[in-house]
């Protein structure tokens, strides 16, 4: 078995997890995508194996070839972010190598012949530790620290990609652009803590004071129908990266939090101090949103005078 680490890269988001495994040794990126993605990876890792994707063929079509390349190198750790195509490759590698596959991993360190893996569990309430023999496959959570750069960009080496699954992209329609959330610098988001549709005006006033777009959690769009479905934030909805995200009456379900991982500053307003949203927030107010939101709107107006 080799001593190195392989990182599956099908999306720039995969490179955001790099700092979590750089301590283990040289990292080889297995890139499935276009040349631009391969070049991006080459500036961050020691080596790049590149499988070029054809037009209108998703990265998932190359999973078998990618898994074969990664497994043949017998790395001790194979990692990726939560990007769908990267996870697809990781599952195939785990099957080929008979390796365990752990999600939500925040850290991997050496332990003699094996590794120590730390991951978040119980919706972030605990850190669980595992001692495993290599190889091990891990889905890493993003790291906000910058990845260490390499002195010279790595050479991009083409990897075999003969077998391609029968998949074809039929259509692609931008939804985040249409909703305006993709480009919004600030977003105020409504959760089930807002009791009535008539109360949305209070939230819209806050959004106006912040010059923010208004979004919502999945149940507010789906169950209540207060917003179009292209305005709900979450894993199956919009994944956004505003500079400011204000969650009003949102509990912080995992699928919602996945949609705001790229946000710079997250503010939570919730009456439950144990709500999961506070574990993902940078700051917040524990209190009745019907008192806090108008007070916040007024405070913003006063600050801008």
């Amino acid at each position: 078995m080799g001593n190195d680490v392989w990182l599956i890269v099908t999306d720039p988001a995969d490179l955001a997890v790099l700092p979590r495994v750089q301590n283990l040794g040289p990292v080889t990126a297995l890139v499935i995508g276009d040349r631009e993605l391969a070049d991006l990876a080459s500036r961050a890792v020691a080596a790049v194996q590149w499988i070029e994707t054809a037009d209108a063929v998703p990265a998932e079509a190359y999973v078998a070839a990618a898994a074969q390349s990664a497994a043949a190198a017998t790395p001790r750790v194979i990692a990726c972010s939560g990007a769908p195509a990267s996870r697809a490759v990781l599952g195939a590698v785990a099957a080929r190598c008979s390796a365990p596959l752990l999600p939500a991993v925040a850290g991997v360190t050496s332990d003699g012949a094996g590794v120590v893996v730390e991951r978040t569990a119980i919706q972030g309430a605990v850190i669980a530790t595992y001692r495993l023999t290599s190889p091990v496959c891990v889905v890493l959570v993003p790291d906000e620290t910058a990845a260490g750069s390499v002195p010279e960009p790595a050479t991009v080496v083409a990897a075999p990609s003969a077998a391609v699954a029968a998949m074809q992209v039929v259509s692609r329609v931008a939804t985040a652009k249409a909703s305006g959330l993709a480009d919004a610098a600030r977003v105020v988001s409504v959760g089930r803590g807002v009791r009535s549709r008539a109360d949305l005006g209070m939230v819209e006033e806050l959004a106006g004071a912040l010059d923010a777009a208004v979004a919502c959690s999945m149940p507010v769009a789906d169950d209540l129908g207060w917003f179009p479905k292209d305005r709900y934030v979450g894993r199956s909805g919009q994944c956004i990266a505003p500079r400011l995200y204000v969650a009003v009456g949102i509990s912080g379900a995992p699928q919602h939090l996945e949609g705001i991982r790229g946000a710079k500053v997250v503010v939570a307003i919730n009456s439950d101090p144990d709500a999961a949203i506070f574990r993902a927030a940078d700051c917040g107010v524990v209190g009745d949103l019907y008192e806090v939101v108008p007070a916040l709107t007024a405070a913003l107006a006063a600050a801008h005078r």
Binding site: P58, E60, A61, V63, A64, A67, G82, P84, A85, R87, A88, V89, L90, G91, A92, V93, A94, A95, R96, L101, L102, P103, C137, V139, A165, A166, M167
Partner: peptide, 17 residues
Amino acid sequence: PGVAPAVAGHLGWPIML
């Protein structure tokens, strides 16, 4: 998030997530 990919890996089938 690794269960569905692992099912595909063990079946040797393609996957879409």
